[in-house]
Design a protein around this nucleic acid. Structure first.
Lengths: 344, 344
DNA sequence: AATAATTATTTTAGCGCTAACATGGGGCCG
DNA sequence: CGGCCCCATGTTAGCGCTAAAATAATTATT
């Protein structure tokens, strides 16, 4: 094997450059650049010779030089709470399916549901001078807001709409409306002693729950001791524990809204262990409608959100803006769907 | 709101540069560069004036220029099958916890379990001229192998060890040994009519299953019609369906090894629906030991792998190599643990 | 006090690429 | 056949930063 120890400090890494390709194919560097980036603008024979030289030399373009020389980085920065969350995975696919064919790269990072981490991540991303940015949520630190305004790049805030004016563009759903829809559904089904469990209380979870509770208040059925939340990260185990805690205080509950499906799984498992029949003794509903929610026993009633479309739409808005189009309106509500199943 | 329509083609974006900061703080650009990157090498007063100027001007460094001028990009490329997979999430955290404090950025991308996607992703990543690279698995296309050799950057192949010689460094576990350990465990527990279900048959899943089956063969208990696999992506639903299919052919099975926990969840749900008692009538085991596996009913027997440590160790090896250290040996097997629970 | 050694800062040059403009050689018009 | 436009390609300059060498300012040593 060749040595890979590198040679820190060596200026040139002896890599093949555009000029090497130019020399080999007998044209100027600029023509090679065009042959690679706008193939239709050079003659066919030149294109072929350049392609051969590229292959023969193993030329790998240098993005840093390209970004620096051109004024565009061909990069979109995507800021989400957690890539590992199945919810955001779908959003990312939607973004990717638009950005990749358009020649844009995605720079992706996690905030881990922390405003502070979000700020430092966005600062870091701005050093890449991305051509556009997609950020989760409408809330952010004031300093970050100012940085983004100063950067003056197209920006789409995703996941939620309606809670405040977006900085630029905005695609998502109304989480408070979704929470309210679930509450109305439960009321219609006849449940009256309704509890709520929530974890990882980011703004969107809070709004879901607030929307849910507002409806209960209106119906005169809200009771603070039935609402149990924590800022711990959502896990299946935590769902079971929160339900257990809730039942200690409220043994007579007839329904529980879990602010996401993972918590709902834990709640269902806990009921199974206690031989509580779902939904006869206790109805359970979740939020996000993950893949497993249709399979668990009983199947889980949940709110399905247009995750893929949120990502896709956000990316499309960005692409159009980058193509010079002026977009009106810039707030898009994609709506949600209540998926009724056996658990509630 | 300020206009964000951008001005494609404008050469300079009128952004604040290092020279602006230098002018304002009354020193040369080089001194500002040092004040920011090696603060201990400039006098305290200069450092302070520079910091003030940076804050006042809202200076954001340009990474493209930095990469181009220096010979290092301060970037580590990470190539994994799927960021959304909970398994890789832990690995990523391990990498991040080492790289971030060392001032390295992570460029992350999915291969979606496709060799072709892996090749194009690696090509794309090489255009960023990362200082190091972490790639999942030991298998890759020959052309990719050559590209990586030509790039001559430190490389760590992660997740599995022992199936072939690594290109450079290697950290992981032996999946065939892990599969074998599960088979021996099942045999010891007295199961004799043992089936296997597998999906998303990447190399590592295949090796788990092969290791499992090899032990059955040795025990004279292997039966091809009890092994059911598909290349579809693993889902909970698919786990249920594969188990159902398997039971049609083998109604007398007494145990099933699922090549990952998601499939095992589906299998458990399917048993619940059919009122098959686990493990009395049918034992079920998974692989990966996800968070929910301890909570499901019955709790799932699974193989726990040192995911966080794999990421951390890989990153550490890379960092040491980048610091100029020569590492021996370069293959690290971190081992696994069989987590016995109620399901098998 | 003169010199050497060390530290702090500046100067110079250039990383690899592309925007903008310049050039040259067809073809088409009047 | 000169003037015009159009196309393919070349030339020039510079994006913002840092490596390396040069210089200036300070401290240590004799």
């Amino acid at each position: 094997m060749t040595t890979r120890q590198g040679q820190p400090g060596s200026r040139s890494k002896g890599r093949v450059t555009l000029n090497d390709v130019a020399r080999m194919s007998g044209v100027s560097a600029m023509t090679v650049s065009r042959a690679l980036n706008e193939p239709q603008r050079v003659s066919e024979q030149v294109r072929e010779r350049v392609e051969q030289a590229v292959a023969a030399l193993g030329y790998i373009p240098n993005r840093a030089a390209r970004s620096l020389a051109g004024s565009r980085s061909h990069t979109i920065a995507v800021v989400i709470p957690s890539v590992s969350n199945a919810v955001f995975n779908n959003v990312i696919r939607g973004i990717y399916d638009i950005c990749a064919p358009a020649g844009y790269e995605m720079l992706m990072g996690n905030t881990y549901y922390s405003v502070q981490q979000e700020s430092s991540l966005i600062s870091k991303f701005l050093t890449h001078h991305p051509d556009g940015m997609i950020v989760t949520g409408l809330d952010m630190a004031d300093s970050t807001r100012r940085q983004l305004e100063a950067a003056a790049i197209p920006l789409v805030q995703i996941m939620e709409v309606g809670t405040s004016a977006p900085l630029d563009m905005n695609v998502g759903i109304s989480h408070s409306e979704a929470g309210a829809a679930m509450a109305r559904y439960m009321l219609k089904r006849g449940y009256r002693r309704i509890g709520v469990i929530g974890a990882q209380m980011d703004y969107r979870s809070q709004r879901r729950i607030q929307g849910f509770i507002d409806v209960l208040v209106e119906a005169g059925l809200a009771d603070d001791k039935r609402f149990m939340t924590t800022s711990e990260p959502s896990t299946v185990r935590l769902g079971g524990q929160l339900l257990a805690d809730l039942l200690v205080v409220n043994p007579d509950l007839d329904a529980v809204f879990c602010c996401n499906d993972d918590l709902a799984y834990g709640a269902i498992y806990e009921c199974q262990r206690r031989h509580i029949r779902i939904p006869q003794q206790l109805a359970i509903a979740g939020f996000n409608d993950l893949e497993g929610s249709a399979c668990i026993n009983p199947s889980l009633t949940s709110i399905q959100t247009p995750l893929y479309d949120i990502g896709k739409t956000a990316a499309q808005m960005l692409m159009r803006r980058l193509a010079g189009e002026v977009l009106q309106p810039s707030v898009v509500d994609l709506g949600f769907r209540l998926q009724a199943r056996d658990s509630a």
